[in-house]
Computed example of a mutant assay.
Amino acid sequence: MTTTTAGLPEPLAEIVEEFQAVPDQQKLELLLELSRELPDVPEQYQDRADTMEQVVECQTPLFLAFEFDDEARTAEIIFAAPPEAPTTRGFASILHQGLSGLSYDEILATPDDVPTRLGLAKAITPLRLRGMSAMLGRIKRNVTEHVASLS
C-alpha cells in the first residue's frame, strides 16, 4: 500500500491506484468511465427523491440513501445523480464502488482527503472537488448517526 492509499478500504484504494496510474489528461476520461458504472437507482427509490437525502453542496442534484444491515454492521449506499452530470456521477460511482457494502467501521475510518488522493485537482474545479468531499462527509455523518441510534 502506498502513501496515497494508506488508510483506505481496499476497494477504494484500488480506485485511487487506478487514478494515480494514469497521466493527468486521462484522469477525466477515467472519471467519465466510472460515471457510466454508477448503478441505477433501485426501484423503491425511483421517483421518490423525497425518501432520499439531497447533498446540497453539490452543484448538480445528487441524492443518497442507505440500507443498513445491523447484524452484519454494513451499509449499502444508494446514489441518484442525473446522467447529464457525469462528473458528479463519477464521484458518486467512486464512493459507491469504494464504500458501499463495507462495515460501519471501515466507512467511518475512511480518510476525508479521498478527492485529493485521486489527483484530479488539475482536471476538476475546486468547487466540484468540494462536492465529492461533501458526499463523503454526508456518508460518514449518516453512518455515525445510525451507529449512535443503535445504543
Rank of each mutant, 00 (worst) to 15 (best):
L32D: 04
S149E: 11
A148V: 06
M52Y: 13
M52L: 15
P61E: 15
S103A: 14
A121K: 11
I139W: 01
R128L: 09
P86C: 10
V41H: 07
R138C: 10
A21T: 14
S151N: 12
P42Y: 06
E57M: 11
I139V: 15
R138I: 05
D112C: 04
P9A: 03
P115M: 01
A65W: 01
V147S: 08
G98A: 04
R73I: 01
F68P: 05
A81I: 02
L95G: 00
P39F: 04
A85W: 03
A49T: 13
A134W: 01
I139S: 01
C58W: 03
I77D: 00
H146V: 07
L30Y: 10
Q54S: 14
A72L: 15
G101Y: 06
Q97G: 13
A85G: 06
G98V: 00
Q44P: 04
D70A: 06
A49K: 15
I124Q: 09
D69A: 14
P82I: 07
Q26P: 09
S103R: 13
E18H: 13
D105Q: 14
G131H: 02
F19R: 11
E67W: 00
S100C: 09
P83D: 11
A21G: 15
H96Y: 08
F66N: 00
R73E: 15
Q59K: 11
G90E: 03
P82L: 13
L136Y: 01
A80C: 05
L127C: 01
R141Y: 02
L99D: 00
G137A: 10
V147I: 14
H146A: 10
D24A: 15
M132W: 06
V55Q: 10
I124E: 09
A75T: 07
Q44K: 14
D105R: 12
G119S: 06
K27E: 10
E10W: 00
A148G: 00
K140P: 03
Q25N: 05
I78K: 08
E29G: 10
A121D: 14
A134F: 01
F68I: 08
G137K: 08
G137R: 08
P39G: 08
P82M: 12
I15T: 05
S133I: 05
Q20L: 04
Q20F: 01
D69G: 13
H146S: 12
L136P: 03
V16T: 12
L95T: 00
A123K: 08
A13H: 02
L129N: 04
T51D: 15
F19I: 08
R128Y: 08
I94H: 06
G101M: 11
L8D: 02
V114N: 01
L12V: 12
A65C: 03
K122Y: 05
C58R: 02
E33K: 10
L38T: 02
Q46Y: 07
L30S: 08
I77W: 00
R128E: 09
R128D: 12
L118M: 12
E17Q: 13
T51M: 14
T116N: 11
M1Q: 12
V55A: 13
L150N: 09
E10F: 01
T110K: 03
T116V: 10
D40C: 04
L31K: 02
D105T: 09
T4M: 09
T51G: 10
L118R: 05
Q97W: 02
R128A: 09
A21L: 14
